[in-house]
Design a protein around this nucleic acid. Structure first.
Length: 281
DNA sequence: TTCCAGGGGTAGA
DNA sequence: TCTACCCATGGA
């Protein structure tokens, strides 16, 4: 089966996929030669399908291996590519600042997401206080050990269904094991309705408060997740941000300096940081 | 061995 | 609010 999803004029397939590192984490597989983003998805029935996304003419072409409900696939892909996120105001803002004009002209601003907030949360936790290499292997172990057919990202239910000791031994996420398992268990027993937090009616301050209440999610993680949820008013200051701002200011900097550096960009701070045209690339 | 990586939790001030 | 310390894992 093949789907063709029309994309907004200010959408860029290439820029969205390059927006951050998610395309390098399973179950995403990026094929540079064919410019294809592949991803296995577990359907509500338990079956696994494979999506292959390529850029079309003002559209995203989706080739689907396996049988699945078209509406459900469309919904997931719209989430993956932030197709419903308005970009006009952000791009208009960028055009008012000379060194940010390329951000608008290259149609940057959307970020690649996973098909659930749950998966985004787990992967953000897997990026904290570790190297990218380990983040990649943690994602691979989660998919391989607990995902449906060892190909899709595990649902919270699949993780909560195994004893913690078994989960920890196979996931090997260090002290993050307990955080991920606790979140999976809370979703499974119904005390945490994480996916409902994506409601646009939720105030940004309340969303941030809730994200910070998740074990393993602090200021950095909450800022990342808010960015993925279209609320870019916080900068996800991390060691990368500190290094870049330090280079820009030519002196050692703290988190506070990073926040001060982006303060003027107000509600667009998080996006400006993510797409900032740093010197030397 | 020791350090530390796209931080976070906790205790104590 | 700020600081110090600890945290599992694995590579350098």
């Amino acid at each position: 089966m093949r789907l063709l999803l029309t994309t907004p004029p200010d959408f860029s397939f290439a820029e969205t996929l390059a927006s951050h590192g998610w395309r390098r984490l399973l179950p995403f597989v990026w094929h540079e030669g064919t410019r294809t983003l592949e991803r296995a998805e577990e359907m509500p029935t338990g079956s696994v399908i494979v999506l292959r996304l390529t850029e079309g003419e003002s559209a995203v072409q989706v080739d689907i291996e396996g049988n699945a409900d078209e509406a459900e696939i469309t919904r997931r892909i719209r989430r993956l590519l932030q197709l419903d996120l308005p970009m006009a105001d952000f791009h208009a803002y960028c055009r008012t600042i000379p060194n940010l004009i390329p951000v608008a002209e290259c149609r940057r601003g959307r970020l690649l997401r996973c098909s659930t907030l749950w998966e985004d949360v787990v992967k953000v936790i897997a990026t904290t206080n570790t190297t990218w290499g380990q983040t990649i292997t943690m994602s691979a172990r989660l998919v391989g050990s607990f995902g449906a057919e060892g190909r899709a990202f595990p649902t919270p239910q699949r993780i909560a269904a195994v004893p913690f000791e078994e989960f920890a031994a196979k996931a090997r996420m260090g002290y993050r094991n307990a955080y991920v398992y606790k979140i999976a268990s809370a979703i499974t027993d119904g005390t945490l309705e994480l996916e409902d937090w994506q409601d646009d009616g939720l105030a940004a301050t309340e969303l941030r408060r809730r994200l910070l209440s998740l074990p393993g999610v602090g200021p950095y993680g909450a800022a990342c997740l808010m960015l993925y949820l279209g609320r870019p008013e916080h900068v996800n200051s991390d060691s990368v941000a500190r290094a870049l701002v330090s280079q820009e200011l030519d002196r050692p900097v703290t988190d506070k300096d990073v926040h001060t550096f982006f303060e003027a960009h107000g509600k667009w701070r998080g996006l400006i940081y993510n797409f900032y045209p740093w010197r030397d690339g």
